[in-house]
Computed example of a mutant assay.
Amino acid sequence: MTRWEYATVPLIVHATKAILDQWGADGWELVQVVTGPDGNGLVAYLKRPLAG
């Protein structure tokens, strides 16, 4: 069975692509983007398989 680790990342509107490209290069897969907890901005939820 695959085990996962997760991350939440605040997205800066003018740098969204660069942020997601960097996390993707590190092996993270984007799961969902939602509005931030304060109602402003966006937060990305990412996952990647645990090594081992």
Rank of each mutant, 00 (worst) to 15 (best):
M1K: 10
M1H: 05
M1V: 09
T2K: 13
T2A: 12
R3Y: 04
R3Q: 14
R3F: 02
W4V: 07
W4K: 04
W4D: 07
E5A: 08
E5C: 09
Y6I: 08
Y6Q: 10
Y6W: 12
Y6H: 15
Y6C: 06
Y6S: 08
Y6P: 02
A7I: 10
A7C: 08
T8W: 04
T8M: 12
T8Q: 15
V9R: 01
V9A: 04
V9F: 03
V9P: 00
P10L: 04
P10S: 04
L11C: 10
L11N: 00
L11F: 09
L11S: 03
L11M: 09
V13P: 12
V13Q: 14
V13L: 13
V13T: 11
V13I: 08
H14Y: 11
A15T: 09
T16R: 02
T16V: 08
T16A: 01
T16K: 01
K17T: 11
A18Y: 03
I19K: 11
D21A: 13
D21S: 14
D21Y: 09
D21E: 14
D21T: 14
D21P: 04
D21C: 09
W23L: 09
W23A: 12
W23G: 02
W23N: 13
A25Y: 02
A25L: 08
D26H: 10
D26V: 01
D26F: 01
D26M: 06
D26L: 08
G27E: 02
G27C: 05
G27N: 05
G27Q: 06
G27W: 07
G27Y: 03
G27D: 04
W28P: 09
E29N: 06
E29K: 01
E29I: 02
L30P: 02
V31T: 14
V31H: 04
V31A: 11
V31N: 05
Q32N: 14
Q32D: 15
Q32R: 14
V33W: 07
V33C: 13
V33E: 07
V34N: 12
V34K: 12
T35H: 04
T35S: 12
T35F: 03
G36A: 15
G36F: 08
P37E: 14
P37R: 13
D38W: 01
D38Q: 13
D38L: 10
D38V: 08
G39L: 01
G39R: 00
G39A: 00
N40S: 11
N40L: 05
N40A: 13
N40T: 10
G41H: 03
G41R: 10
G41C: 09
G41I: 10
G41M: 02
G41V: 05
G41L: 06
L42R: 11
V43L: 15
V43A: 05
A44D: 03
Y45H: 15
Y45W: 11
Y45G: 00
Y45C: 01
L46G: 01
L46P: 00
K47M: 03
K47W: 02
K47S: 02
K47Q: 15
R48I: 01
R48Y: 00
R48V: 00
R48P: 00
R48D: 00
P49I: 06
P49Q: 14
L50G: 02
L50A: 09
L50C: 11
A51S: 13
A51D: 14
A51M: 09
G52N: 11
G52E: 12
